[in-house]
Amino acid sequence: AEKTGIVNVSSSLNVREGASTSSKVIGSLSGNTKVTIVGEEGAFYKIEYKGSHGYVAKEYIKDIKDE
């Protein structure tokens, strides 16, 4: 049951290796980017990222929809 969301930041949002603010940053997404959410862990969504997965803070994702 995948969902999509939109990155809701003015600059960019860090994509992390794990569901923690201390996890390594593996990339970033600019505002209004559409993401595919494959799961959630605590305050983070697990998303599809560059052929693999990454984690982003839930508070910066809006317009969550079921695909």
Score class of each variant (00 low, 15 high):
Lys62Gly: 13
Glu67Val: 12
Lys62Pro: 02
Tyr49Asn: 02
Gly51Glu: 08
Thr33Trp: 06
Val25Asn: 04
Asp66Ile: 12
Lys46Trp: 06
Gly27Thr: 03
Thr21Arg: 08
Thr21Ala: 15
Val56Leu: 05
Ser22Phe: 12
Ile6Asn: 03
Tyr60Gln: 05
Ser12Cys: 05
Gly42Glu: 07
Ile6Ala: 05
Lys50Trp: 10
Glu40Ala: 10
Glu17Ala: 14
Ser22Tyr: 12
Gly54Glu: 00
Ile6Phe: 08
Thr36Gly: 06
Ile6Gly: 03
Ser28Trp: 15
Gly51Lys: 10
Gly31His: 07
Ile26Arg: 03
Tyr55Lys: 00
Asn14Leu: 08
Ile64Leu: 06
Thr36Met: 09
Gly42Leu: 08
Asn32Ser: 06
Asp66Pro: 14
Ser23Pro: 01
Glu41Arg: 09
Asp63Met: 15
Gly31Thr: 10
Leu29Thr: 02
Ser20Gln: 11
Ser12Glu: 14
Ala57Phe: 14
Ser10Tyr: 09
Gly42Ile: 03
Glu59Ser: 10
Gly18Arg: 07
Val35Arg: 00
Val9Ala: 12
Gly18Val: 13
Gly5Phe: 06
Ala57Trp: 13
Gly54Leu: 01
Val15Ile: 12
Ser22Val: 14
Asn8Leu: 13
Thr33Cys: 05
Ala43Arg: 15
Ile26Lys: 04
Ser20Glu: 11
Leu29Phe: 04
Asp63Trp: 14
Asn14Trp: 13
Ile61Leu: 07
Gly54Asp: 00
Ser28His: 15
Ser52Arg: 10
Ile64Glu: 12
Gly39Cys: 04
Ser10Lys: 15
Glu40Trp: 08
Lys34Thr: 06
Asp63Lys: 07
Thr33Ile: 15
Gly54Val: 04
Tyr55Cys: 00
Lys50His: 15
Ile6Pro: 01
Lys24Ile: 13
Thr33Val: 14
Gly39Lys: 06
Tyr45Ser: 01
Leu29Gly: 00
Ile47Pro: 00
Gly54Thr: 01
Glu48Leu: 09
Ile6Tyr: 13
Ser52Gly: 13
Phe44Thr: 02
Tyr60Met: 08
Val9Arg: 03
Val15Pro: 00
Ser23Phe: 10
Glu67Cys: 05
Arg16Trp: 13
Val25Asp: 04
Ser30Phe: 09
Gly27Ser: 02
His53Lys: 08
Glu48Tyr: 11
Glu59Lys: 11
Ser52Met: 14
Phe44Trp: 11
Tyr60Val: 04
Val9Cys: 06
Ser30His: 15
Val56Lys: 00
Tyr55Val: 01
Ser52Val: 12
Ser28Ile: 09
Leu29Ala: 02
Ile37Lys: 01
Lys58Ser: 07
Val9Phe: 07
Glu48Ala: 10
Gly54Gln: 02
Ile37Ser: 00
Ile61Pro: 01
Val15Ala: 01
Tyr55Gln: 00
Ala19Asp: 02
Thr21Glu: 13
Ser28Asp: 15
Asn32Lys: 09
Asp63Gln: 07
Gly18Met: 15
Glu40Asn: 08
His53Phe: 12
Lys58Asn: 03
Asp63Val: 14
Val35Asn: 00
Ile61Arg: 01
Ser52Gln: 13
Lys62Ser: 10
Lys65Thr: 10
Ile64Phe: 10
Lys50Arg: 10
Gly5Glu: 03
Val38Tyr: 11
Val35Gly: 00
Thr36Ala: 14
Thr21Trp: 10
Ser23Ile: 02
Gly51Phe: 06
Tyr60Leu: 12
Glu67Ser: 14
Glu59Ile: 14
Lys24Asp: 10
Ala1Gly: 08
Glu48Asn: 08
Asp63Tyr: 11
Ser23Cys: 05
Ile37His: 00
Ile6Cys: 05
Lys65Pro: 09
Ser30Asn: 10
Gly39Met: 04
Glu17His: 06
Ser30Thr: 12
Glu48Phe: 13
Lys58Asp: 01
Lys46Arg: 09
Leu13Ile: 09
Ser23Glu: 07
Ser22Ile: 11
Lys34Phe: 09
Thr21Ser: 03
Asn8Gln: 15
Val38Gln: 08
Ile47Cys: 02
Gly5Ile: 03
Lys3Asn: 06
Thr21Lys: 11
Lys50Val: 07
Ala19Trp: 07
Asp66Phe: 08
Gly54Trp: 01
Val9Thr: 12
Ala57Gly: 14
Thr33Leu: 06
Ile64Gln: 11
Ala19Val: 08
Ser10Gln: 10
Gly27Trp: 06
Lys3Tyr: 08
Thr36Trp: 12
Lys62Met: 10
Ala19Cys: 04
Ala1Arg: 04
Ala43Ser: 10
Ser23Arg: 04
Gly18Pro: 01
Glu2Ala: 08
Lys58Glu: 02
Val7Phe: 02
Gly42Arg: 06
Val9Trp: 03
Leu29Asn: 00
Val7Gln: 02
Val38Lys: 13
Asp63Ile: 15
Gly31Gln: 14
Ala1Ile: 07
Val56Asp: 00
Thr4His: 13
Ser20Cys: 06
Gly51Ile: 04
Glu41Val: 07
